[in-house]
Amino acid sequence: MLNISEQFKGKKPLITYISGGDPSLEMTEKIIYRLQDEGVDIIEIGIPFSDPLADGPVIQAASQRALENGTSLKKLIAKIKDIKANVKVPIVLMGYYNSVLNYGEHQFAKDISEAGISGVIIPDLPVDERAKLTEELKAKGVSQILLVTPNTSEKRLEEIAAKCSGFLYCVALLGTTGDAREPYPELEGYLNRVRRFSGDLPLGLGFGIDGPEKVKKIINYPDGIIIGSALIEAIQIGNTETEMLNNAGEFVREIKRAIKDYS
């Protein structure tokens, strides 16, 4: 599997999120190829879940579309395993704990490592919760990316940073994904505070980064940025597969340009 932290060397990586199976697993494959061709550095793929309580309306709808066409975690992992040889950037799965618990934590870690998946993000599994997942992932060499938020205490920052690998996911604001309000007003102070505990872990900033203007405002502070809802919206505007893929490409080029111009 590909190394996540390598992607942070010498640049500020662009990490993009798409919902697995939206609108189909075949399309997910094509979007992955297009994203990596356009220079996306890490690709997060969402595990569709019926009750995604950390997500805003865009990702809820994407998740719903994926479920309606029959996407399951099993099929998603199988798809990623199938295309392993063609994927040139690290793949990270993002989903809710019930999906993993239901799949079986041991089996999940085994199957995703065989599929070449580099990391996992579970937003409703806090660092101190009872779960076997952390050990299982470690045994397979899969990174567990944990989240911190602007209101996370210093005591928890220390604990989270110690158990996190790959990169530390810094949530930009108090809110759900796709929340396009301005990021937390004291972003610089927030990320500086996080850095006191994060050691060598790079900081990825996400939630509500919706275009080049927002990138310009925030790019100085994190080591990389994560974009999900805005990309999904751009893709959704397309009427045909080709349009969708072109929209994804154009969106990524604009963001890459903004990262380069303003950092």
Partner: peptide, 11 residues
């Protein structure tokens, strides 16, 4: 039981 929630809610 437990507290399976986004980190934002922990405080």
């Amino acid at each position: 039981g437990g507290r399976f929630v986004p980190e934002t809610l922990i405080p």
